[in-house]
Amino acid sequence: MMEEFKPVRSIFEIPRKERLAPGHRACAGCGPMIAIRQILLVSPEEPIVVNATGCVEVATSVYPQTAWIVPWAHVAFENSAAVASGVEAAMKSLKRRGGIDKERPVIVFAGDGGTFDIGLQALSGALERGHKMLYVCYDNEAYMNTGIQRSSATPYGAWTTTSPFGKVWPGKRERKKDIISIVASHGVPYTATASIYHWKDLMTKVRKALSYDGPTFLHVYAPCNRGWRFDPSLTVEVARRAVETRFFPLYEVEEGKYRITVPVPKPRPLEDFLSIQGRFRHLLRPEYREALETLKKMVDDRWTWLERMATATSKS
């Protein structure tokens, strides 16, 4: 069941009440923090946040301080979807017994490691059981908290400390896992990608996701300047170019229907995205030309597939 929701069209619609305090310990130019601030600002009600172990968690919660102006809990790395399941289910019982008046929205923040890899089972379980929660994966495409190790969200060809490029390896040798398809396969009502540059798109998706009575999922592209090797001033620009080169398409899967929410009719060359990041710059060297072509083909194929899915599911 879906409630009414309003798309975000202007900055003046956004409440001024901050839910993430300034002064936390994240790096300058941290993409995930921008994403989380945007998401919390636009949540219609004060949510309960469950946070997986990771950069965001350690940067916001060093005892005796906290940056969270909303109720917040962290338990471990791989179990945030399960913790959120418990919070949600317990609220149902408390409400039935008259202990509370209403249930509050539950939002999970977990990185790509905590979602694509070690937390995938807990996520799948929670999705299948249908707990009402918005699960947000802030994707910075590697294990950044431990110092830039590859995850299954790391794209092909990217350098990390465990997928270095060398005489034989081009960087990461495997493609990025398609988490949206995995989530959508659970039959959840709403799942979408988003990016911090396209904030109206992101905020609209948050409102839409929270309007559903069931599990919803947001995959937010959140550049990490430390891990991707770019200047902290470029975080938002990197996020923008990821979309404008079709490297990270913005789309949603709503009730089984695919829709590209930010069309990119004339994509910029992929090099515009790669060249401003140290993790990809080797791909522009002649000896890695083959790897660059492979990556370009993956990007093209993915876009074509997405367009086909959008067309195929728009009828009916």
Binding site: Y63, H74, L94
Partner: peptide, 13 residues
């Protein structure tokens, strides 16, 4: 987590 005044649980020490 349901208290009137928001609290954080499971912090890093």
């Amino acid at each position: 987590l349901l208290d009137e005044r928001s609290k954080s649980f499971g912090l890093m020490a």
